[in-house]
Nucleic acid binder design. Sequence first.
DNA 1: CATGAATGAGCCTTCATTCAT
DNA 2: CATGAATGAAGGCTCATTCAT
Lengths: 218, 218, 218, 218
Amino acid sequence: MAVAEVHSLGRIPRKRVDKFAERRTELAEAAFVTLAELGYARTSLREIAQNSAFTHGVLHYYFTDKVDLIICCVRLYKARCVTRYDRIIAEAGSYDSLCDGFLDALAATMRDEAQLHRLWYDLRAQALYEPGLRVDILDIDHSLEAMIWRVLDRFAEVTGVATPIPSALAYATFDGLFQQCLLQYLAGDDWAVTRMVANARLTLEALYRGETETRRGS
Amino acid sequence: MAVAEVHSLGRIPRKRVDKFAERRTELAEAAFVTLAELGYARTSLREIAQNSAFTHGVLHYYFTDKVDLIICCVRLYKARCVTRYDRIIAEAGSYDSLCDGFLDALAATMRDEAQLHRLWYDLRAQALYEPGLRVDILDIDHSLEAMIWRVLDRFAEVTGVATPIPSALAYATFDGLFQQCLLQYLAGDDWAVTRMVANARLTLEALYRGETETRRGS
Amino acid sequence: MAVAEVHSLGRIPRKRVDKFAERRTELAEAAFVTLAELGYARTSLREIAQNSAFTHGVLHYYFTDKVDLIICCVRLYKARCVTRYDRIIAEAGSYDSLCDGFLDALAATMRDEAQLHRLWYDLRAQALYEPGLRVDILDIDHSLEAMIWRVLDRFAEVTGVATPIPSALAYATFDGLFQQCLLQYLAGDDWAVTRMVANARLTLEALYRGETETRRGS
Amino acid sequence: MAVAEVHSLGRIPRKRVDKFAERRTELAEAAFVTLAELGYARTSLREIAQNSAFTHGVLHYYFTDKVDLIICCVRLYKARCVTRYDRIIAEAGSYDSLCDGFLDALAATMRDEAQLHRLWYDLRAQALYEPGLRVDILDIDHSLEAMIWRVLDRFAEVTGVATPIPSALAYATFDGLFQQCLLQYLAGDDWAVTRMVANARLTLEALYRGETETRRGS
DNA sequence: CATGAATGAGCCTTCATTCAT
DNA sequence: CATGAATGAAGGCTCATTCAT
């Protein structure tokens, strides 16, 4: 029996469940370090254990298997990312300040948390192969879409222009840009972030300013 | 010495080099089958050998290691995908026929070659971790961007409207949509392709028709 | 000090010893379920705990180790099996009714308690390797031999024919037949029980009727 | 791919198949040592490798899994045991010499190959739980039954008395006796072999001499 | 040129056991 | 008394890689 399954029985006292969940989070947090560095396929539970204060036995005690652990990690990611822009949204009062705030945050995220997002794209790719990951990955994907939509909603509020595209398309665009930038950035392209920001700004202006004049270029 | 390195020495007679390269292509072709089915991490050289007419030893003879083989496979992918829409472009004479042709082809690609593109996204994710893959992946990425741009250029030609966004942004958008759809499609969402097509059409109309009226929805 | 050893010290008040032994029996009873289903080698203490109302810790509290627990289980088995045919013996008054009663019981045992006897043969095989099990297994074996002998003694009484073979040989024969049948029965051979009964009847008739005519067959 | 599966493809040249099978036998032979000493459940592939000249990798190279290896071992056992009494049968010309030859061989087998037979009973017990083992075990069981029957057929020939019981019953009896003796013998009971021989002789006499006078005893 | 036998590091997982509470 | 968290040895198995032929 894996104790990891116990917490779903319902007969276990509240306190224990909490403690159990806490420990899982703690372990997932520790696993994150290695996972972000090596990626899904190259990370072994032993490696995770070695890079943390835990034994590899304890990982198996708290998680039924590797996928269970990874999913738990991914949920952490979700909780972490999903509110990233909310403060900016709340504070900014004009299109310009909102735009600057959002784009600055975008750039900062790329620069400060490239590893974390690299893991996210890795896991989303693995979900294409592992059905067991799909539900959770799709769930997070929707949360991220909602997060982007909250930003755009604020733009709409501030500008008085209803966002003219569905949230899925908006998310696809910003996600596409971010992912494109990430690879270039990791490959050492110093201008990648700048280009991403420029393209994001372009997108926002097309949406809320109706400006569409540009020249071709990447 | 690994014979695999021979072909870059330049002192080997032309004929031998060609034969060597041919053999590599042949092997890579065979590897593709397994790779597309299982993905990067889950594919072993043994598995590739078993699913083909070749022995497991010959793979190591022609490729220095696994990454070498995968890169060779990826180059095949490039050759295969990069001209996909060119015929449509050439044939279509009006905005509507171009639009329909492109969007039909997009949907067909999703439905017929989901596996192949799943592999592409997997490999691009691996490139985030394996520097050895990056150059080739980025190269293909640029080819794909160029491919999309050729499509949009034709739209510009047909409509007389200069494409108002840079190619990188255009690629990011369509790539984002395609990738979003792929996961949903593989997860069994029957409407995913329809939604992707709708969003792609929306994007095209916004670019070349200036129409922006929509309601929110996914 | 393991509390498990306490009950043999003799200085502990009677009441506590009883309670301790009771608890062991209770636990062994619970372990039986899992043990019969999975067999000796495939049963872990965790599994036993999970399939019962007890925690995995308490098993180690009451038993010094796995073998200690299994031996306790085996003792339960003994108590359960050893009187199986006694009622039939007492009730039957003629050779025919005795024969029918015994053979019916034999067949019923095979059909209803195959799992339990499968465990018995498993444990007896383990005793070939684990000296710690031998004493108890041999003890049960003798009890079973005595059980068979009581049956045959009743045959002798009813027919007036002294049983012409030693009890060890009699036990070996019936045990051999039973074991042979068990494997075939579990392998899905529907006629196995019928054949066993036929061979057992043949044996009884040879012993008490002097009939020996048969044709070869299995 | 496990090369172990290759030999069933049919396209592999005769010579290679033979070599492959030879190597399997060689490895199985080596595995036997450890297996006989420790029994099925306690034997690990690593242990087998350590007690032999092979690496544990080579075991996995030639056998698809543990069961495959064990079955191969068991087949060796079969080949080894099944002709054990054939020479005796051929040589003995009278009931007495046949009887002495057979019983001597029985006793010698017990004394010289106790370990080997201990493994047999262990595996047969495991077959009660592992369906994957059943076919092979039943196959061997039938071979052993046939072996016993050949012995009895010779008795019939020599004495002119048709064997009055089916081969299954005969096998069950001798097998029961042998197994009974084996446990006692391994438990240090010095008279166990003597008793087994006495009971076997008794059985033979009952079958071919019609003598049935005995006193109770074990 | 090509083969496939052999290696051994490494992976995920299971488990009996220990021990602080 | 009883719990269950934690440990770490061990197990079956996979795999890239090496190398003799």
